[in-house]
Simulated assay, not measured.
Amino acid sequence: MTSPLERLGTATASGARCVFLSPHLDDAVLSCGALMRALAPRSEIHVVTVFTATTDGPHTRAARSFLRQCGHGDATDGSTLFAARREEDRVVLDGLGVSHEHLGLPDALFRRRAVPRALAGPAARVARVLPELVHRYPTFRYDIALGRVSRGDRALGAALAARLEARLAGADLVFAPLGVGRHVDHLLTRTLGAGHPGRVVYYSDFPYDQSHARDEDFLRRHGLRAWRHDEGPEGRAAKADLIRGYATQADALFPSGVIPAAPETYFAA
């Protein structure tokens, strides 16, 4: 049986059944848009996006800041923003000719702690004053961005793995984020790929890999080697157009208006 790295090297010519695991409603295209575009004419591609929803407020300060960065006027309600993001994702992926599904789980910024029913009333009153106390990730900088997966999320990985087992087992290649930048949602999604060592390919998380180092220990422990996909100036321009399709995110991710023309990097055994 050929290795994931060998299959990846020949997939653009011969085609393959590929599942791309995307933490959020743009990550697969941000990191893999050029490869997906190259594979689409002769491959069966399916994108599974995991964290695609919000929850009711009150939201934390970090969540409200995110809503404002996305140009969302009402920082107390993220539902309309996430509806727009899901539609953006649908339009971009339909344009690529790939199938897709949204799992409907809340983004880390909006996930709440489990509260016993007897404490629901007091918790609601606390949330109105200090919502950070009832969220699994009170801050972005000191919780989400440091890769500190909440105890309440530990069972989430197992539940997701069970939910997606049949889908992933039927793929020739499973693409998962490497977790560059240490965002907890990217790390949780990475574990889904890690459960399929015979077919997983990790992608370098763009644009976070432009400012954060890769986890060299993870690469070494799993015996992963790099493979790069670069279609030159024309392909890079086409990918930039795909990224701009995520209008609610593009300005926040690339405030200068310039999307770095970087080759896509993948890692497999």
Rank of each mutant, 00 (worst) to 15 (best):
P197A: 14
V115G: 09
L25I: 04
A120Q: 13
G232T: 11
L187R: 06
A176N: 14
R151Q: 14
G232H: 10
F218V: 01
G235T: 06
R225W: 15
A261R: 13
V19D: 08
D89G: 01
L105E: 08
A84V: 12
G245H: 02
A11W: 02
G57D: 09
P138A: 01
F175Q: 03
P207A: 03
L25H: 05
L105F: 10
R64N: 10
R220K: 01
A176W: 12
H59F: 07
H102I: 03
L30Y: 04
R86Q: 15
R148V: 02
S3D: 04
P255H: 03
L5K: 01
F82C: 13
R112F: 09
D217I: 12
R136H: 08
R141D: 09
I45F: 06
R85P: 03
V47L: 05
I144H: 02
F82W: 02
F140R: 00
G33E: 10
L173W: 14
L35T: 07
F206T: 06
L187N: 11
Y246I: 10
G257R: 07
A250I: 09
G57Y: 08
Q249P: 03
A145I: 08
A62T: 11
L109E: 00
P260Y: 00
V50W: 01
F66E: 05
D230W: 06
E132F: 03
F254P: 05
H59K: 05
T12C: 10
D56S: 12
